[in-house]
Amino acid sequence: MKRKRFANPFRRKRKVDRAVGLAPGTISIADDAVPTSIRAIRFNRSEVKRFENLTVEEIPLASSDHVVWVDVVGLGDEPTISAIGKRFKIHALSLEDVVNTHQRPKIEVYDDHLYIVVRMPSSNGQLDLEQVSLFVGNGYVVSWQEREGDCFNAVRKRLESSSREVRRHGSDFLAYALVDTVVDAFFPHVHHFGDALDQLEDEIADQNRGSEVVHQIFEIRSDIRRLRRVAWSHREMIQSWLTYNGPLTGEATRLHLRDVADHTIRVVELLEMCRESCSDLRDLQMSAASMRMNEVMKVLTVIATIFIPLSFIAGLYGMNFSTQTSPWNMPETQWYFGYPFALFLMSLVAGGMVVFFYRKRWIG
Rank of each mutant, 00 (worst) to 15 (best):
K2P: 08
K4D: 00
R18K: 06
G25I: 08
I27T: 07
I38L: 15
R45M: 12
S46I: 10
V56T: 09
E57F: 01
V67C: 12
V67M: 04
V73M: 10
V99R: 12
V99Q: 14
Q103V: 06
Q103F: 09
P105M: 07
S123D: 02
D128N: 13
L129T: 10
E130M: 07
V132E: 10
S133D: 15
R147I: 13
R147H: 15
N153V: 06
A154M: 02
R167V: 11
H169Y: 13
S171E: 11
Y176P: 00
A177D: 04
A177P: 02
V182C: 09
P188E: 14
H191G: 00
R209G: 05
I217F: 11
R225P: 00
R226F: 08
R229T: 13
E236Y: 09
P247H: 13
G250L: 10
T253S: 13
L255C: 01
R258Q: 11
R258C: 01
D262Q: 06
V267A: 15
R275Q: 11
L281T: 11
L281W: 08
A289V: 12
S290C: 03
M291C: 02
M291F: 12
V296D: 07
V299C: 13
W328M: 14
W328K: 13
Q334F: 04
L343W: 15
M353H: 10
V354Y: 07
V354P: 02
F356W: 12
